[in-house]
């Protein structure tokens, strides 16, 4: 294991009563990597992400995120990560700049930093005219771009994206992935879950979860070769077939 692993977990497990949502998963993610975290609905992706973000306490297992222990140092982890949830995660009844300022403030940026970075962000997204718009009035694709920009506003070491492109049209998804690449170029590690197998191809490495376990983990090309598939969709189907868990 090299020193630039920003996420390192082994035997991570989460049980709810008798149900094992996440079953002894182990993996590591390198700095600056775009790591795809795939799996069918109910495979345990969201639970795993919540443990990594320090929102949910693991039942068993250990690991570090951004160099901090997930069992004991979750407050420190929270300062060094960004999180964009499955549900849309900005406040609809706040203006664009108010959302940016709120989250900037929550992550402890000072007023000057917030003001400078807000300008930069709005320019980059070509959102200057929407500065005062209520978030609820924006189209979904724009909201998601904004939510992503807000999640990386404080330049975290890692950003966790839980199905960030759900319900967005292909053109918008394409633009969204360009933003993800830009973030990765800046050195932000991207940990992303998705349903869309074409998106899996954009990742440096992907893991595929089936019934709470990680059944495959490698680069998309290696996985395709291993499973004798033409694309990630076939790889996924071959693995998902083994699932015994009802949706």
């Amino acid at each position: 294991m090299s020193n630039n692993d920003v996420i390192k977990v082994s035997g991570l497990t989460k049980k709810f009563g008798h149900f094992t949502a996440v079953d002894h998963i182990s993996f590591d993610v390198k700095e600056g990597e775009i790591f795809g975290f795939l799996g069918a609905n109910g495979a345990g992706k969201t639970t795993a992400i919540q443990m990594l973000c320090g929102i949910s306490k693991p039942t068993a297992g250990k690991g570090t995120v951004a160099g901090y222990d997930i069992l004991r140092e979750n407050e420190k982890i929270k300062r060094n990560i960004g999180y964009m949830s499955q549900k849309f995660s900005l406040y609809e009844d706040l203006r664009v700049w108010e959302n940016i300022r709120l989250f900037g403030g929550i992550y402890g940026l000072n007023d000057k930093q917030i003001a400078d970075k807000t300008e930069e962000l709005l320019t980059r997204l070509k959102f200057e005219d929407q500065r005062n718009a209520m978030v609820r009035s924006l189209p979904l694709g724009w909201k998601q771009k904004l939510a992503f920009s807000v999640a990386i506003f404080h330049t975290p070491k890692i950003v966790f994206l839980d199905e960030p492109t759900g319900g967005v049209d292909p053109a918008m998804r394409r633009q969204f992935w360009e933003m993800i690449y830009e973030a990765a170029d800046q050195g932000i590690t991207v940990f992303v879950t998705t349903h869309y197998m074409d998106e899996a191809e954009y990742c440096n490495r992907v893991s595929i979860m089936v019934d709470g376990r990680i059944d495959a983990l490698d680069s998309p090309s290696a996985l395709k070769q291993q499973y004798d598939a033409v694309n990630m969709d076939q790889v996924f189907r071959k693995l998902a077939r083994k699932s015994t868990r009802a949706e």
Partner: peptide, 13 residues
């Protein structure tokens, strides 16, 4: 309900 609580819990707040 809106999912913003998760974001807040994942933040240093």
């Amino acid at each position: 309900e809106r999912g913003t609580m998760e974001v807040l819990l994942a933040s240093p707040l």
